[in-house]
Design a protein around this nucleic acid. Sequence first.
RNA 1: GGUGGGGUUCCCGAGUGGCCAAAGGGAUCAGACUGUAAAUCUGACGCGCGAGCUUCGGUGGUUCGAAUCCACCUCCCACCA
Length: 432
Amino acid sequence: MMTKQPLIEDLKARGLIAQMTDEAALVAHLNEQVVTLYCGFDPTADSLHLGHLVPLLMLKRFQDYGHRPIALVGGATGMIGDPSFKAQERQLNSTEVVQQWSEKLKQQISQFIRFDAGEDGAILANNYDWTAGVDVLSFLRDIGKHFTVNKMIAKESVRQRIEREDSGISFTEFTYQILQSYDFQVLNERFGCSLQIGGSDQWGNITSGIDLTRRMNGKQAHGLTLPLITKSDGTKFGKTEGGAVWLSPNKTSPYAFYQFWLQTPDADVYRFLKFFTFLDVAEVDEIEARDKAAEGRPEAQRILAEEVTRLVHGDQALEGARRITEALFLGDAQSLSETDFEQLQLDGLPATQLLNDLTEMPLTSLLVDAGVASNGKQVKDALQRQAVIINETECGMAQNMDTKSLFAAENARYGRFFLVKLGKKKHHLFYV
RNA sequence: GGUGGGGUUCCCGAGUGGCCAAAGGGAUCAGACUGUAAAUCUGACGCGCGAGCUUCGGUGGUUCGAAUCCACCUCCCACCA
């Protein structure tokens, strides 16, 4: 890294700080030494999603400034469920499932930070290791004694659950903040970890961990939270028609991932460039200025999509995503060669093999079965507007029952490919 | 334990015997305009190509006909004890 402004200044400029404990003390602490910091990720699914990306990149930002990150997988806390700002009690997952998910998260996290032997080499930990073996009496006497229920109840993060009588909060979830606090204390003791970061919903858990660390270890620790990522139109960030955008290529293909970013509204894109990429703030401002001056289509979305896809899926996957995008949106699909088609499939364009007998198979059902649309109504709607295109041929309602002839061999590209477009953005490859 | 209010389609929320697959808003999808953006306008929005099928906390009843009436059950809310 070249000359750059101090870490906290940079984070502020990016809008990445929601709250922090005593700023002056934290800044001084970061300037004085290599700081070991941690962020926890609970296994609530078999993959991380976009919501985890900002904290994950935050760890990397700290590492880039010479600090030592600990990525903590919540094998233990994931068994309990964090009640913070959740409206309802969570469904518990079995031990095997949580452990399995923990392993997957570990692998994902590993690709973002450096695990070399240097003093800023990252550490991967699982709180299951130090929590599973604690017996009840020790837990209550050694740890629980440091918490007053009065304070625990007062936390904003659990207040609505305590005040609302229709949901309530189980003792299990109520103890979550103790477990997380214990993590901080243990990490402080074992690795000298003195800073915890997390989403702004974690503020309560973080400060209680700081308290516990001070009580049990006599050490002063710090905390910093990141803002909740919001969209300018008020809808939830990180969701698409199909649900969450995952970091695992098996759950969200690099192509879909790339497309997600490419479709970022102008009103959010520059903010997101600061949140999700390592481009300098000045660079982002420059891009913005250039786009404003240029009139017409901005460059920002493309840059954002490329940067983030590369970060999460690597150069090769990015190339694949770009190839598909170019073929489908920029070039004309007419000119694709046979190997291009094969490549599209390899690159992750959703593809489905055609059934042998398409007699009596409505186009609506075919497309729904392939996952192009979620129900027949959507296909029907598109058909009524001539918005279904099979290899350059527009289809209307009248063709709904003509699936067999639409997908007849003589209409296939190179005798086996059908590129189906539903609406402007959904593409699907069918092959014989 | 008592009294009163309530559980409606993804969410919020109307509907109190037929005109209800169920107002309105949000979310979502598609079209127009654009730049694979926003805003705006249009259409779709329980499932089904269709005939048609299945919904209004649950079960059973009254009725030609029920989300709407009755009984019981269940969950929630408010107040009282």
